[in-house]
Design a protein around this nucleic acid. Structure first.
Lengths: 392, 392
DNA sequence: TCAATTAATTTGCCCGTCGAATTAAAAATG
DNA sequence: CATTTTTAATTCGACGGGCAAATTAATTGA
């Protein structure tokens, strides 16, 4: 609790922590002493701007001790593997991006890929893999973060594997695996709009649709530990076919492949043109006023708004963050979408959630994965702190 | 914690509580002593069946002290006001049901109605209203249970009122107001399928659709305190008009009025026939093989399954309880519905939630409201326990 | 130089919890 | 029938987390 307050405020004095948490100064002194002894935080001299110094003993700020833990975060998509190095303070020390082999990956390929990326990203930070305290990996699919068990991931050949233990065996540091939408939620919680908000939803828009649910400052993983399958909530009875094999999934209306499927009816592209480029052409056509192209995006955004509205109706959130980088998703961030959401939710007036857009790229997702690794490592450190005390 | 263990197991010995909670026997002794002193629990002699008695000091069972707190629970619908008297043990001591004046009710009518019902139900239990420690009231609409503030309720003329304080002024006991779906969830938690399950969803089917979300043994009220608006999640873009004024709400396909609206296209009823009877006729026709009638129910159940599937996809529950009394809802409990849910959710195999049906009537809803009142009263008692200790 | 002021620490205390020892109440034993 | 065995419950002493109050530390202002 003390730790997360310091983290959220970057640096603060003990007295401020006491006020913010409601604890007594005595308790704060005791706890911070332990954290300092454990190397997790450190004292820093507060820079006093001339003229505004007050009388009395000056406060001594505390901040996270960045060098105590350095971790890597990694994000796997069908096209790229993106990685960052983060220290405990959240400073980005290095980054790397390598092309992803064409999925689905064999176990062998995966076991070679991850260390390769770690080598690359640590090199970028002028470090060695051994310097890392942990790595966090964000992947699409259904992941039980507590155990590292991957029920299903579109990127892998093998399913139902324990990726955490699989990778840990060939790596010198602990590995934490997390659903990629939850990685982004984590990034929002540590570095983004969610810093001061205890409850919010993060909707991610990428190849698929993801949802991260943050309740009371913690990620809600469903009662059985699996992530929220927002992309496969149904928005149409007997609707469009989804790549999951079911019908009417939101994803089947909003994802790239859904848009291209529609477009293929009236547009013939050369084989050689990438999906990416096709989408850009489609989007440009819509913007230029082509009604058919426009109707494709219109339907997608209408369906998306409907899915969002359902989330708002069920969770009654005060904040919804939409996270996705690409230009081609602009239509999903349009005012029209927000209007539909507002008109499709019961929450009235001051209960309407704020909807904010974060155009974050893969790097932020990787940072989220790193944040998850940091959180777990810190949690372990603090737990051990308590235990070692008990023995002494 | 100790208290809820005793409540859930009806009666158990101290040593069992220690084992179940992980506390030491010493602690259990201390806590139970306090609870006994407060009158909340009492010792009972365990009935030893001959032949199966073990050596050693016999365990002394503890059970809730029913007479310590007697509460009333009340459920308001558009047609009836249903009330029960419950003691702390959950024994039903009395019941009453009076017709509801035609909504919307004025403040005056409401303020007269509630005491009248309390008089009736306490009389049925051979008691006086003064004997009640509290009353709990379950109403449809959006209710902030913590404050008793009613944002919107279809039964009342006035909206945005604090029903809790409004009623408390004219009643001798504290009043707790709760969304009716949450009342049912509460009933499941105390008396039903949810007794041993920490996380589950309760879907209620009545005039509208309700949802109670139980996470970690507590009712989840959305991050802003308002209940989950399941009935107004959207299952169809630009769909059927709902009584809330929006389009495509699940309720607009499943609720009574939705079915009758469809039926009115091909069936003309006498003015005098009640909605209730119309529905029964419609249902009988469908059962008898009338294709048009059947298609109405078919669509309703298909939409309902879709809404359920979305809940499962988002919350990943291990248990979903469907609660509704009337025969006319049988089609919603059909195997076909469960099949659609299973085929529309990502959860596979062992992660599929169990779906159970509870044909509970208004009386159980009222019991849930009473349970809520009991929980609040007990919580207050236990809190005061700690405080009075601090002073002594 | 000395008060005034504010931050941080130390001290002593309370409370909840625990392990270990003790007491209580039964059955089994000879 | 007294004694041992067994199991439940309680008591006792101790410990750790957290707090209020007192104390110490470090600064500004008079």
């Amino acid at each position: 609790m003390v730790f997360s307050h310091i983290r959220n405020n970057l640096q603060m004095a003990r007295i401020d922590i006491a006020n913010a948490t409601g604890m007594s100064p005595a308790t704060v002194t005791a706890i911070t002493a332990e954290l300092i002894a454990a190397g997790l935080i450190e004292e820093v001299q507060r820079v006093v701007e001339p003229g505004q110094s007050k009388r009395g003993r000056p406060r001594v700020d505390l901040k996270l001790h960045g060098k105590e833990h350095i971790v890597a975060g990694m994000k796997l998509t069908g096209r790229w593997v993106t990685a960052v190095i983060l220290d405990l303070e959240g400073n980005q020390l290095g980054r790397a991006q390598v092309p992803m082999p064409r999925p689905p990956l064999s176990r062998q390929t995966l076991l070679e890929l991850v260390p390769k990326v770690i080598d690359a990203v640590t090199k970028d930070a002028d470090m060695a893999p051994e310097d890392l305290s942990a790595i966090g990996i964000g992947i699409p699919g259904t992941v039980q973060a507590t155990t590292g068990f991957v029920d299903w991931c579109p990127l892998f050949q093998e399913q139902e594997i324990n990726l955490k233990y699989l990778l840990q065996d060939s790596l010198p540091m602990p590995v934490f695996v997390e659903n990629d939408a939850n990685s982004v939620a984590m990034a929002e919680l540590w570095f983004g709009f969610g810093k001061d908000v205890p409850d919010f939803l993060v909707v991610t828009i990428e190849e698929g649709l993801g949802l991260g649910i943050v309740l009371d400052g913690k990620i809600f993983r469903g009662t059985q530990g699996f992530g929220a399958e927002f992309g496969h909530t149904k928005v149409q009875s007997e609707g469009a076919l989804c790549r999951c094999g079911q019908r009417g999934c939101l994803e089947a209306y909003v994802a790239d492949y859904a848009l291209l499927r529609e477009a293929s009816l009236f547009r013939k592209w050369e084989e050689s043109i990438s999906d990416e480029d096709r989408l850009i052409q489609l989007y440009d056509a819509a913007k230029a006023g082509d009604q058919t192209s426009k109707s494709i995006f219109d339907r997608a955004s209408r369906m998306f708004a409907m899915g969002l509205a359902n989330l708002v109706n069920l969770f009654d959130p005060s904040l919804v963050i939409l996270s996705g980088e690409q230009m081609r998703f602009d239509y999903l961030y349009a005012q029209a979408v927000f209007d539909i959401v507002r008109n499709s939710t019961i929450q009235k007036g001051h209960h309407q959630p704020e909807i904010r857009v974060h155009k974050w790229g893969d790097m932020m997702w990787a940072k989220g994965a790193a944040a998850y690794a940091l959180e777990e490592i810190v949690r372990l450190s603090i737990d051990q702190l308590g235990n070692s005390d008990a023995h002494s």
